[in-house]
Structures are given as C-alpha cells and as structure tokens.
C-alpha cells in the first residue's frame, strides 16, 4: 500500500502542535458528504490531543461530480492567504448542505475578507495550481476517494469516528515515546 508521498511542507495548512510527535493528514473535498461527516469528528480529535497532534488538510476535489468543490477549495486558499484558512475551512463544512458560490462570497464577507479580491482571485484562478498540486500529490499517494487520512505517513484504514481515531493516534504517540 502506498504511503504519503508528499511530506508536510511550507505550503501546507497546519493546526495543532507544529512540532507535535504525530501528524494526521486529511485529503478532503468540501462538497463530499463523507468529509462533511468527518469534520466534527476531526475537530473533536484535535480538541482531545491539543498540541500533541499536528493536523494538515489537503484538497482533493472531485469537481466533475461536486460542482462547488474546486471553488470552495480555492476560496479556502484565498482565505489562507489572509491567515483565515481554518476559519473558512470550518465555515464551509458547517454550511456544506447549502454550498454555492454566493454563499462562499458571504462567508468571505463574514470573515472580513474583500469580495472584490476574492472575485479576482477566482477569475484569475490564482489558487488553482495549489489545489491541483494537493490533488495530484494525493493521487500519487494512492488516495482513491475522500476523505482519506494518513497517520504519520501511513494510510489510516480504520473507522472515521472519535474512538477509533483517538485509539490509533494514542498508539502512534505511545510508539513515539522514547523507551527508557
């Protein structure tokens, strides 16, 4: 089984402890209902581990079947350029059931971001290359649907619920403890 081919780097959006012993990477699609269902689970897991876990979200939009997924990813990147990636990330998932381009502009407004700049960025596809790079990195790592998680570079095959993720991360943290 392929592992994560693209290591966490400067272009990634990171939450939790930057130097945490364990890293969880998610490949997700803002219009995918399974990712929407995973969102509160991941939030709770991040809350549970705090600085002991590093979390990275990468884009994997299946835009042919999810017509707003690519735009939503570019809007999140736009917000990221203004230090609001995670706020936008959360707002998009929390409003996933009514995702639309006008809604994405309203979310940008709610975060105090310029709608004019956002319109320009989307028209000029400023963030399309970053989204595509995430997608291709995912493909090369064997991502075949969303959400796909990697725990310390290894594909996570378990259930996407709180107990299973916490147990898997606890196991990794225990393995990372220096043995006396």
């Amino acid at each position: 089984m392929t592992g994560l081919r693209v290591p966490v780097g400067p272009s990634d959006h990171i939450r939790g402890g930057r130097d945490a012993p364990t890293t969880l990477v998610e490949y997700g699609d803002y219009e995918c209902p399974h990712c929407g269902a995973a969102y509160p689970v991941v939030e709770a897991v991040l809350g549970h581990f705090g600085e002991r876990l590093r979390f990275v979200y990468r884009h994997f939009p299946l835009s042919e079947i999810h017509p707003h997924a690519e735009t939503a990813a570019e809007v999140a990147e736009f917000a990221g350029a203004h230090d609001e990636f995670w706020a936008m990330h959360g707002l998009i998932f929390e409003n996933q059931d009514r995702l639309s381009t006008p809604l994405l502009f309203r979310l940008a407004w709610a975060l105090g971001l310029s709608q004019t700049s956002l319109r320009e960025a989307l028209q000029r596809r400023v963030y399309a290359a970053k989204v595509r790079a995430d997608f291709i990195g995912g493909v090369r790592s064997g991502v075949n649907g969303t959400p796909t998680f990697f725990l310390d570079g290894r594909r996570y095959e378990g259930l996407i619920d709180h107990a299973a993720l916490v147990a898997a991360i606890d196991t990794r943290l225990a393995e990372r403890q220096p043995h006396p």
Binding site: L62, V139, N144
Partner: peptide, 13 residues
Amino acid sequence: GDQMTLYNEIRPE
C-alpha cells in the same frame, strides 16, 4: 463509480 470518477479527474495527468 468512485474509480471511474477518479480517473475522469486524473485524465489530464
């Protein structure tokens, strides 16, 4: 469905 959808997206590669 997922597999063919995925290849559809990756076709440019």
